[in-house]
Write a protein that binds this DNA or RNA. Structure first.
Length: 367
DNA sequence: TCTCCAAATATACT
DNA sequence: TCAAGTATATTTGGAGA
């Protein structure tokens, strides 16, 4: 059963409390204070959710995704700041450039999100984990020297373990998990710590009596498959054994581009809804153009005032990157939502997918 | 009944 | 209690082979 796996050395770099760290860097007077970066809806005051907070804020119980009002009640002295996404994107781009330059090659880099990435250094470190650790330290220093923010690094034989290693010691840590240490590294962890297992899967596993990764690792695959289906069941078994053959995705961007925002008030007022929709579509088109991609399908999301979410999507006969087509189609879909339900809308979103390079074909008239 | 693929929902993470 | 935003993965269901 043992499969032949080509040995690899994968590094995962995770910026420490990224948004809050950048705010601290930009305004040194924030040092020593609890800093909470919030995503405010456009409903004024403190309606919104916490995006990131620094460690002083976390000590008082503030967490990502927590409603800002609750965060405020937990720590009224904390500094609450609105997200400045564009600034963070700029910093992110610089950090990613550093990381990319440390990878074996173009394919050996994968940006996971604005503040984390994988790089493969199998060749550069000649598969030697001591050399790999030195490289990790140098990468941390380079980021610190250039951007004056810290990160945590995990080094391991695959993405799964590297990702988990980077969160093992935070902030400003480095954790190396050699191939022979993978099993011991995972053994004592609760299943929730496995990257890819969230609340839902955790609870389902509890129901069949599995709490730790080692219990999961020794669980019968067939039992997992009967509870979770073939692909997820097998994934769980392999992940618990520290196996993850997935390659890095190279430098390609996301497969989807989306925007979502709250209405000022819960409403089903058409001009209000379409005004916001138009704004969101503008942003999506700008992003798509910047990436030089066409899209072939789109999805409209509505979150109703009771927080129930509903989506409708549409696939076009061919890929385009056209604001008017997107707007007209999204409008049609939105009208359906209005017909089908009498409930007020709280948030709406637009997303385009099925992205393809726009090089070659110019526009729909070429067809 | 199998396969493809579009549509809708579920899940994860910050 | 109050409750944002972005992205990916999985499931569902209908049409054609």
């Amino acid at each position: 059963m043992e499969q032949f796996i080509i040995p690899r050395v994968i590094v995962h770099v995770d910026m420490d409390y990224f948004y809050a760290a950048i705010e601290e860097r930009e305004d040194p007077s924030l040092r020593g204070k609890a800093v909470v970066v919030c995503m405010y809806s456009n409903r004024g005051e403190s309606s919104g959710a916490v995006s990131t907070s620094n460690y002083l804020a976390r000590e008082t119980g503030i967490r990502s995704a927590m409603p800002c009002k609750i965060a405020r009640s937990k720590n009224p002295d904390a500094v609450f700041l609105p997200v400045r996404k564009q600034l963070y994107e700029q910093v992110s781009e610089k950090v990613m450039t550093i990381l990319r330059s440390n990878a074996d090659n173009e394919e050996g880099f994968e940006k996971v999100s604005i503040d984390e990435a994988f790089i493969e250094i199998t060749e550069s470190c000649k598969n030697d984990y001591d050399i790999a650790k030195d490289m990790g330290i140098r990468i941390k220093e380079e980021i610190k020297a250039n951007e004056n923010i810290t990160c945590s690094v995990g080094i391991a034989p695959n993405k799964l373990i590297a990702k988990m290693a980077s969160s093992f010691q935070k902030p400003d840590g480095i954790t190396v998990v050699r191939p022979n240490d993978v099993k011991d590294f995972l053994k004592p962890m609760p299943v929730k710590k496995l990257w890819g297992i969230g609340k839902v899967t955790e609870e389902k596993l509890y129901e069949i009596g599995i709490r730790t990764v080692s219990e999961l690792a020794s669980c019968d695959v067939m039992e997992l498959i009967s509870s979770f289906g073939k692909s997820k069941g097998m994934w769980l078994k392999n992940a618990a054994n520290g196996e993850d053959p997935t390659p890095l995705k190279g430098r390609k961007g996301a497969d989807q581009i989306g925007r979502m925002a709250s209405l000022e008030h819960d409403s089903r007022n058409e001009s209000m809804i379409f005004l916001l929709l138009n704004e969101l579509i503008g942003d999506v088109i700008v992003k798509a153009e910047a990436r030089k991609v066409y899209f072939r399908s789109m999805t409209v999301t509505v979150i109703f005032s009771d927080f129930k979410t509903s989506t409708k999507s549409r696939t076009l006969s061919h890929a385009v990157c056209d604001r008017n087509i997107l707007m007209e189609t999204a409008k049609e879909i939105m009208n359906k939502f209005l017909e089908e339900s009498a409930m007020n809308f709280r948030r709406i979103g637009i997303r385009v997918e099925d992205l393809q390079e726009s090089t070659g074909q110019k526009n729909i008239f070429d067809f």
